[in-house]
């Protein structure tokens, strides 16, 4: 029986289609990299913001929170927490500083991280910077 659609045709679609897709994806990535500076607010990445991202990672904040919608779904979105807490880095710092070591009975709890003043300032600046990224208007409202 002669098959109209052979295995080697299938293989060629796989190799050709796969390679083409990767190349196109790389091309789109290059283009994205060129456009990002207009959107990602990178001119405002100060040493404080950089420290803040490090503190964010070293304490795994993303294991409870989402940031720009990615992370864990246990605690509030933080991409816009700067706005939610009244455009105040101070309020962010107070919130993080004031977590009781033993948690809040019966309520989902956030650990007391014992951050230094410098680290707190970094985190707050990092969250402020994040809130100023152009995210195509996401989240839909202030509650994140």
């Amino acid at each position: 029986m002669s098959e109209p659609f052979t295995k080697s045709m299938a293989r060629n679609i796989f190799i050709g289609g796969g390679l083409f897709s990767f190349l196109l994806f790389v091309g789109l990535t290059v283009d994205t990299m060129e456009r990002l500076p207009e959107r990602d607010n990178r001119q405002n990445i100060t040493p404080e913001v950089a420290l803040g991202k490090k503190v964010w990672e070293d304490n795994n904040c993303v294991g409870c929170h989402t940031i720009l919608g990615e992370g864990a779904y246990f605690a509030p979105e933080l991409g816009n927490v700067y706005q939610r807490l009244g455009h105040s880095t101070e309020a962010i710092k107070v919130m993080i500083k004031s977590r009781p070591v033993e948690g809040v009975p019966g309520r989902r709890s956030m650990p007391q991280f014992n951050l230094t003043e410098e680290e707190l300032e970094g985190i707050a600046q990092f969250l402020k910077w994040t809130s100023e990224i152009n995210t195509n208007n996401w989240p839909p409202n202030i509650q994140g």
Binding site: N60, G63, C64, F74, E102, V104, S109, P111
Partner: peptide
């Protein structure tokens, strides 16, 4: 922990259980 927020807190915080 989703329903008893302080379950195993602070020994195993949610983020640790998740990772």
């Amino acid at each position: 922990q989703y329903v008893m927020g302080d379950f195993l807190f602070p020994e195993i915080p949610f983020n640790i259980a998740r990772m």
